[in-house]
Computed example of a mutant assay.
Amino acid sequence: MGKKRKGYIPVMLTPFKDDGVVDFDGLTKLTTLYLRAGAAGLFANCQSSEMFNLSGEEQLAVTKHVVRVADGAVPVVATGTFGGPVEKQADFVKRLYETGVEAVIVITNMLAGESESTALFDERFEQLLDATLGIPLGLYECPEPFKRVLTAEQLKRFVGTGRVIYHKDTCLDIQQVRAKLEATKGVSDFGLYDAYMAHAVESLKAGSAGLSCIQGNYYPELIVWLCNHYDDERMADQVGMVQRFFIEHMDIMHDVYPVVSKYFLQKRGLPISTFTRKDVGLFDAPTRKGIDAFYLEFSQLLEQIELVPNGVTP
């Protein structure tokens, strides 16, 4: 999860069968898709995974399955904090770490409430560190149920403990990202992965270890391509084209998500259902028509930058 090369860390979907049961065969195929696309790691049990709609045992089973399918090819991280007393959260962190993940992710809105202070959050994070000795951790500014964004100073202190190796940033502000990168500069075993594609190229050039965005749940190869070519002067025109594409299509990729991304992956040939446990709105005919048009635009973009997909199903 460090900064040896830029990489894409997928925020993984959870495939379900049409009756709402976790589709582990679909999860195998989805994990294989990410790996074939060139993912540098995998983020299981995250918001895109509908983690708040999974039971604790399902979270453990899904994470263990992803670790098994990855089979050491790339590191896997997964969320392990879901509210309640610090001791309770620490217990689940320990259980999740036993699945074989590289690090357990702490979502920043689960250690202190929206109206509670930064000082209280810091105190509880220190308690969690003490209660999970030896376990590498990551941080994720999860937008739901509310977003708690870390300051550069906080991130510097947490990374300075030697326990935090990963940060998924969702501040959406390139100046804040730069400040966090400057604050953690020189720490080789830590990586900041940016979620916001609107400033993806700027973030990579500023020193982000890579990208961790929902757009990769449509076409992960394209995010990997951007991580590989963002600073290639010979491909500056194509890089600019890809960056503009993501900016211009931000809304359609977020609307009725993750149903729309599952539908998009169906069109690519991945045999998964569009079922989601989370209520994200109506996937109606106009929305479907918009995604169909979006799929064609994606295909045209791939031709323009001469990117050949790596295939979908095993």
Rank of each mutant, 00 (worst) to 15 (best):
K156C: 04
I135N: 06
F121M: 07
H65P: 12
L155E: 15
V101C: 11
P136S: 12
T151C: 03
A119M: 04
K147F: 02
Q89V: 03
Q89N: 04
P85M: 10
G134E: 06
T108D: 02
G84N: 08
E87M: 00
S115M: 13
S117C: 03
A119W: 03
G138P: 07
Y97N: 10
L133T: 15
T151K: 00
G83Q: 07
V76Y: 11
E153H: 07
A78Y: 03
A78N: 08
K64Q: 14
D130E: 15
F146V: 08
G80V: 02
Y140A: 03
E116Y: 04
F121V: 03
F82H: 07
F125R: 10
M110S: 12
T108F: 01
G80A: 11
Y140W: 02
G100T: 10
L155M: 15
Q89R: 01
P75Y: 04
G84E: 11
T118I: 12
L150T: 09
F125P: 05
G80W: 02
A90L: 06
L150P: 06
A78Q: 07
G84L: 05
G80C: 05
L150H: 07
L111P: 04
G113I: 10
V93T: 08
Q127E: 14
P145W: 08
E87H: 00
L150V: 14
M110A: 05
K156A: 15
Q127H: 10
V93H: 11
V69I: 15
K147Y: 05
E116L: 02
E144L: 11
A90I: 13
S117D: 00
I135D: 12
L133H: 14
A152C: 08
A70F: 04
G138L: 10
A90F: 10
C142N: 13
V101F: 11
L120F: 01
V69S: 03
Q154G: 00
F146L: 07
Q89I: 01
F146M: 08
E123W: 02
T99D: 07
T118Q: 13
G80D: 05
G84K: 10
V76I: 13
G83D: 03
V76N: 09
G80N: 03
D91F: 00
G138C: 08
P85T: 05
I105T: 07
L139P: 04
S117F: 05
E126M: 03
V104D: 11
Y140T: 00
Y97W: 13
F146N: 10
H65V: 11
E126F: 01
E98M: 03
A103G: 05
A112P: 02
E116G: 04
L128P: 10
V93M: 10
K64W: 03
Y97K: 15
R68G: 06
Y97L: 00
F146Y: 15
A131N: 08
Y140P: 02
V69Q: 01
P75C: 08
L137M: 14
T79L: 04
A78G: 05
E87F: 00
V106F: 02
R95G: 02
L133W: 09
V149Q: 14
V93N: 06
V101Y: 13
T99I: 09
G84F: 09
L155H: 12
L128M: 12
G84T: 06
M110K: 09
T81I: 06
L133R: 15
F82N: 03
G80R: 04
E87A: 14
T151H: 01
R68K: 15
V106R: 07
L139W: 04
I135K: 09
A119G: 01
N109T: 13
V86Y: 01
L150M: 15
L150E: 13
